[in-house]
């Protein structure tokens, strides 16, 4: 049996739009993954810390406030600092296409836009981390 993928679903920044994060968390759990949800209003430091503490394979960030270009790279940088760059970061939210390219060049593993089927996220995670 394949090992269970451990995912930290995290909400960085100040916005409270947690519908997407919770829907994805539910879907990943129903797909057999171990899911930890940080709750709202997390700083990059809190998220990186939780990712290391919980020894997850991957962090999923949900961000709808427009602060993605600040939050994603900051979390990646903090993971690196804690020698945890093996923990990959993916995410989703209100993110324009050109910013998706920027984020990917900054080391974000994958960005899922609005309207994504949760099965695509599951498929992606299983391919990469199982």
């Amino acid at each position: 049996m394949a090992k269970k993928i451990r995912v930290l679903v995290a909400k960085p920044g100040l916005d409270g739009h947690d519908r997407g994060a919770k829907v994805v968390a539910n879907a990943l759990r129903d797909a057999g993954m171990e899911v930890i949800y940080t709750g709202l209003h997390q700083t990059p430091e809190m998220i990186a810390e939780a990712a290391v503490q919980e020894d997850v394979d991957v962090v999923g960030l949900s961000i709808l406030s427009g602060a993605h270009l600040t939050m994603f790279p900051r979390i990646i940088e903090l993971l690196k600092k804690q020698e945890a760059e093996h923990i990959k970061v993916f995410g989703g939210g209100i993110i324009p296409a050109e910013d998706v390219e920027k984020l990917e060049s900054m080391g974000v593993a994958k960005v899922f836009g609005p309207g994504t089927d949760t099965r695509d996220i599951i498929k992606y995670l299983k391919q990469e981390f199982e």
Binding site: G13, L14, D15, H41, T43, L64, S65, G66, A67, L69, T70, M71
Partner: peptide, 22 residues
Amino acid sequence: DMPTIMGYDSDHLRSLGEVGKC
């Protein structure tokens, strides 16, 4: 914007990246 909604001034650390965004 989110810092105003959450009660942080624009130069607060928690406002980083969020000022004037939404």
